[in-house]
């Protein structure tokens, strides 16, 4: 807290996520690939941020770093003031378990496993007891409008329904942040709008910070702020406007 208090921008409710001069380099020497060339990005608690940019602009790399799945080559990533770069693999796993939720483009549900069991999965890792686990998973399924589909496996669900199961799985642990990587990329327009409405509702009603990558302008329009990536850098114009 003392560390956070020393910074002018670290007032309560802001700078949940704080990237400073973050670079990511894959490979070495002449084969080195600079995915991120030094980005600064602050995301406050309760924000809904859309990340846009062409393929290879580094937005997926940035999401992996934000999701604590990867660590920066240089620079710092502070999550709630904690330098993620100094955490061990297991400590980052615990951070993901308790504070982060993921929604992927390809849904990434466990096959041949019911919607209910999929949603229960993060709670199992949190050691939530059976009755409580079941109750919370059913509540999460209800929140995404899938009460009647609890016993269905992903193969028996439409794409839109699968993505809603994935959202239920992300929010069942009541995370601080949901990271969504092109959550509507595999869905038609109507389904996409339903998913976006759902994410907006989570953001608005529960105060969950949402960071999502999208290619589509009208999906980005749901967000309170749009961050543009280009060639491993955050486009200054967009961030400058938002930071002001």
């Amino acid at each position: 807290m003392a560390d956070a208090a020393g910074r002018p921008e670290a007032s309560p409710g802001s700078a949940l996520i704080e990237l400073r001069a973050v670079t990511k380099v894959y490979g070495r020497g002449s084969a080195a690939m600079h995915a991120l060339r030094g980005i600064d990005l602050d995301i406050a608690a309760g924000e809904m941020v859309a990340v846009m940019g062409p393929s290879g602009s580094g937005k997926s790399t940035a999401m992996n770093i934000l999701g604590c799945l990867d660590t920066p080559t240089s620079g710092t990533y502070r999550f709630r003031g904690v330098d993620v770069g100094t955490l061990s693999r297991d400590q980052r796993a615990l951070l993901r378990r308790h504070a982060l939720g993921f929604v992927f483009q390809g849904f990434n549900l466990l096959a041949r496993t019911t919607a209910l069991e999929n949603v229960e999965l993060p709670l199992i890792y949190q050691r939530v007891r059976r009755v409580e686990r079941h109750r919370r998973a059913m509540t999460a399924l209800a929140a995404v409008g899938l009460t009647g589909w609890a016993k269905h496996t992903p193969a028996e669900l439409s794409g839109g329904q699968q993505q809603r199961v994935a959202i239920a799985r992300a929010l069942v642990t009541d995370p601080a942040v949901i990271l969504a990587d092109e959550p509507t990329g595999n869905l038609d327009t109507a389904r996409s709008r339903e998913i976006m409405d759902l994410l907006c509702a989570m953001n608005r009603e529960r105060g969950i910070t949402v960071v999502m990558i999208t290619h589509e302008q009208d999906m980005a329009a749901y967000a309170g702020r749009v961050v543009h990536f280009l060639d491993g850098l955050v486009e200054p114009a967009a961030t400058a406007v938002e930071d002001a």
Binding site: L95, R97, F102, P122
Partner: peptide, 8 residues
């Protein structure tokens, strides 16, 4: 998926 969800 398990690792992303927070399995150690």
């Amino acid at each position: 998926i398990r690792l992303a969800i927070g399995a150690r």
